[in-house]
Design a protein around this nucleic acid. Sequence first.
RNA 1: GAGGUUGUAGCUCAGUUGGUUAGAGCGUCAGUUUGUGGCACUGAAGGCCGGGGGUUCGAGACCCCUCAUCCUCCCCA
Length: 456
Amino acid sequence: MSKPSLPQGTRDFGATVVRKRNFIFNTIRSVFELYGFQPLETPAMENMETLMGKYGEEGDKLIFKILNNGLDNQDKLEKTKAGFDKIMEGKNSTAITEKALRYDLTIPFARYVAMNHGQLTFPFKRYQVQPVWRADRPQRGRYREFYQCDADVVGSKSLINEVELTNIYSTVFSKLNIPVEIHLNNRKVLAALAEVCGGTDKLVDITIAIDKLDKIGIDKVKEELIQRGLTETQVNQIAAYLNISGSNTERLQQVNALVGNTENGRKGVEELQFIVDYIAAQPGVQPNIVLDFTLARGLNYYTGTIYEIKALNVQMGSIGGGGRYDDLTGLFGVPNLPGVGISFGVDRIYDVMEELQLFPEEVQTGTQVLFFNLGEAESKKAFELMQQLRSNGIRCELFHEQTKFDKQFKYAEKKNIPYAIILGSTELQQQTCVVRNLVSGEQTTIQQTELLQQQF
RNA sequence: GAGGUUGUAGCUCAGUUGGUUAGAGCGUCAGUUUGUGGCACUGAAGGCCGGGGGUUCGAGACCCCUCAUCCUCCCCA
């Protein structure tokens, strides 16, 4: 028997980690609720055809497929073999696999909306916090099983939704104490850039290349653009676009000068302007918005605003992203339902908070009070008192067996329990107990009847 | 899918040009005379050196294969 192990890219979470993760989840959920979003949960697995073709060619490869049961059924041998041949050609076959693990939360959401659009009240605002799976190669900040926290609004074209989502990002990260930049762009601006230089068919090539700007630098981007078949004049135009800098207002002016003469460019600029102005006018703390025209994002269903969250002071990929899509449910036969959504990458947020040491210490308090076990009659009394404290909402436990003080103290210390209640033969007789603060070392003897009034 | 890194005690790692019985720190457990922890001291347990094959009188070390791991690219959260 070899040592037990975990599938690549998956993790166990111990008590400490779960508490920290829950702190993040609870913060995000509470903010979603604050903005009027409602919870939704969908199954871990979806039908293959629901997922395939939605994430681009690369995406399809990264979907975890589930092998059908009963492939050893001799009656279906021919069918199974034919199906396997198709798989070998890189195609899919429902004879071999008809289910797959959820790859993100947006497509299952779209599927849900398409299935239930008759019953839903629009605009429909939902949030969803569940794990997703990708057959990616794991590395720093990347796992094969990880959680996403999504919030989407469908059935509304209003840019106020974008403003709301921006504020959700800002509120969550300020509650978590993570300094971030909220990068904003608009697909229409990118489309306009392609129109102005290179033609619309070069849109994908251009976006892939310029998305890498901060990683590989301007010269390499230029190289890549040439490789992707753009002329030198076009590359220079794009370089001018990438050179846009200054305040958000200045950036908008510059981009407008470059692409504002096209319909797409005009609209994209207008939309970004709306969001920036709307937020600037709101009271309270201002979200840290950065207009970033190099931002592209892979998912090809985005059509308008796109978001990406960059944590400051740490080397980490984006910790959140999202965007607007004109017609997500169209893929599932329900056209004309526009929407916009955002996503939080909890696992990366966790890593960032760990690195910057941002978790509050209170997160780790489990048991508040440990009752010492000092004998049969003593522990019976302690048990009784413990139950009373519990009914008052105090988290406590009784040491499982009678043993010397040393062991019981050390147990409390290991588990970070702040209070010990000592009830030995003397206390039993006098109907008292000793309450000891394990952090300060102070202790007092009180009547057992006073215990419920004690502050922990 | 392409390239690289590292696999030795529960954890972090030493281990010399190949040479007796493979080490340290931390952790675990027990004790320092049985009602007050954190410190200190003493002691113990714990290893098919990732797995398989090869070279050699002799392999933790060298060679081949394999598995796992972490990282980079691609892509993404």
